[in-house]
Amino acid sequence: MSYFKELWDGIRTTAQGLRLTGGYLTKKGVYTIQYPEETLPIDKVTHRGIHEYDVDRCISCENCAKACPVDCIYIESAPDEKGKPSKGKAAIMTRFDIDYSKCLFCGLCVPPCPSECIQLGERYSLPGHTRDDMVVHFHEGGYPIQEKTEHAKSMIAEFRTENLYEKKRKERADRGIPTLRPAE
């Protein structure tokens, strides 16, 4: 007898489940999206994707490289008159590479930056065939920054009044370092 009871229990509970899933046939609402034609909305302020970086405002202080747990930021700047790597507002970056085969996207490099010229952006796709493809050379333009903070905006204004953008761009052109950033 218990055989039939168990059989009946199986049929009954399965029918309950089927009723539930069947109910979704008529319910409205989409839960899947067709990637890559459609993508999920991304929060522009908080999303931790590939970095955005402003090569002109960077003062080559290396705070970001020191804060990075995996040491995946490589920084070099052109020598100044004394032959030492240039620092401060006049710094000319000759190398600012981030190795994304190592990066954790943790965001620890963002808060220590005094000029707020590095932040995590909204891009997330960086396919490549070799390890070298994973290294992004930000000093060549890389991904320009989208300003998010008041402090950054005020710094830009300061840079403009001192005409530093023009100066740096000219100097970089003289040294043969390309810039992707369009002239303002």
Binding site: E6, D9, G10, R12, T13, T14, Q16, G17, L20, T21
Partner: peptide, 15 residues
């Protein structure tokens, strides 16, 4: 409740 109907109280799952 849906998960419980589909899994927890389902006879086949229990077996």
């Amino acid at each position: 409740d849906e998960y419980n109907t589909l899994m927890t109280w389902n006879k086949l799952f229990q077996e």
